[in-house]
């Protein structure tokens, strides 16, 4: 019962923060709301017994990525851009019924999936060894190749980000003459 209360608390927190993410105009407030939502989602993970994912959510998302966003928001001179309103109101009104429809549809799909889902074989293991150990052992045995690929993707993404985002020297035309 206490778990349910905690879950409800984190859920409401997450949803309120998400609404904040899409409604606030100032990007700094938005990133703060996103940070809040990420922390709430980490809490949801804890209620589901996924300690490892929750911890990584806090470490990677809430700290690293959010800080990265903050850096970008503060280091780039956005004020040079033409000021415009922060939202498309027409599209928001238009898409709202569609979004509601999509919500209902996804909910139905999930419910169908819940009734059809089989019981996994790992519950005993998880209860015996703890969730983190089981996740780690399966991640580094069965999904090891995928893990390597993901690390390679991260590396490539990092190099790509550096290449794309670096400041171009304005000597291009002179050099290639």
């Amino acid at each position: 019962m206490v778990r349910l209360l905690i879950f409800t608390f984190f859920s409401l927190w997450a949803i309120v923060s998400a609404i904040g993410v899409i409604t606030f105009t100032n990007p700094i407030y938005v990133i703060l709301w996103l940070l809040s939502a990420l922390i709430a989602i980490a809490g949801i993970f804890f209620t589901a017994g996924a300690e490892l994912v929750g911890a990584l959510q806090l470490l990677i998302y809430a700290v690293a990525i959010a800080v990265f966003y903050v850096f970008v928001l503060t280091a780039v001179p956005w004020e040079k851009a033409v000021k415009k309103s922060s939202h498309y109101r027409t599209e928001g009104v238009l898409s709202f019924p569609l979004i509601l429809l999509l919500y209902l549809e996804i909910a139905v799909v999930f419910l169908l999936g819940v009734t059809a889902s089989p019981e996994g074989q790992l519950r005993g293991l998880i209860e015996k060894f703890g969730n983190t150990e089981v996740v780690g052992s399966i991640l580094f045995s069965k999904y090891f190749f995928a893990f390597e690929v993901v690390s390679l993707v991260l590396l490539i993404g990092m190099i790509g980000a550096v290449l794309i985002g670096r400041k171009e020297n304005q000597t291009y035309e002179d050099d290639t003459r």
Binding site: A14, I15, A18, I19, V21, I22, A37, I41, K84, S85, S86, H87, Y88, R89, E91, G92, S95, F96, I99, L100, L102, Y103, I106
Partner: peptide
């Protein structure tokens, strides 16, 4: 709920 809110944000955000 979070997913559709994210989608809505993608649509309405400038």
């Amino acid at each position: 709920a979070l997913f559709v809110l994210g989608l809505l944000g993608m649509i309405v955000r400038r």
